[in-house]
Amino acid sequence: MSTDSDRINPTILNRLNQCSPSAVADTKHESVDTLTAMIKPIHSDCTFAGTVRTVVLDPSALWAPVQTLDTALEDEVIVVDTNEQ
């Protein structure tokens, strides 16, 4: 499970939501990263931006994704690594 990090200013999040991932990636700012195009969204009719919290889906510890969701803060993006290829 990831550790907590600094929150992103809501004004910045609103501005990022108006940009395409490629435009954000082109900034090459050291604290900005985008997801690979191989990761497909569940819903394709929305955009979002936020601090990412990653959790690995491990069959021996299925509580980890639930705990991550329980402790997630507003505007955080939860990414579940299912280890599928």
Rank of each mutant, 00 (worst) to 15 (best):
P41E: 03
P10G: 08
D33T: 14
D58C: 04
H43R: 07
A49E: 01
V80Y: 04
D81L: 13
I8G: 03
S5P: 02
D45H: 09
D58G: 00
I12G: 00
D75A: 15
D58I: 12
D6G: 13
R7F: 12
L35N: 03
M38D: 13
V55F: 06
V77H: 07
K40V: 12
I12E: 03
A49K: 02
S22G: 05
P65M: 11
E30K: 14
D81F: 12
T82L: 08
L16H: 01
V66M: 08
L69C: 12
D58L: 05
V80D: 02
L35T: 01
T51K: 13
A64H: 09
S60T: 13
S44K: 03
T51Q: 04
V66Y: 05
L35Q: 05
D75N: 15
T3C: 02
L62M: 12
V66T: 05
A23N: 13
L73H: 10
E30R: 12
D33S: 12
C46W: 13
E30L: 15
S60H: 10
P59Y: 11
T71Y: 04
Q18Y: 07
E84W: 13
A23V: 12
D6W: 12
Q85R: 08
T54N: 01
S20E: 06
E74M: 11
V32R: 05
T34K: 02
N14S: 14
A49T: 05
A49I: 05
H29Y: 08
D6Y: 13
T36E: 13
P10L: 08
D33W: 10
E76T: 08
R15L: 13
P21M: 08
R7D: 04
V55L: 07
A23E: 15
V66I: 14
W63G: 07
L62R: 09
S20H: 06
L69A: 12
Q67S: 09
C19R: 10
T34P: 00
I39P: 00
A72E: 02
N9K: 07
V52M: 02
R53W: 07
P21Y: 01
A23D: 14
T51C: 10
E30S: 11
P21A: 01
A72K: 05
S20C: 04
L73E: 02
V55I: 10
Q18K: 14
V52L: 13
H29K: 03
C19I: 01
A23Q: 12
A64E: 13
K28W: 09
D33C: 06
L16N: 00
S5M: 08
V56L: 09
V77L: 15
E74Y: 11
I39D: 04
L69Y: 14
M1L: 13
G50T: 03
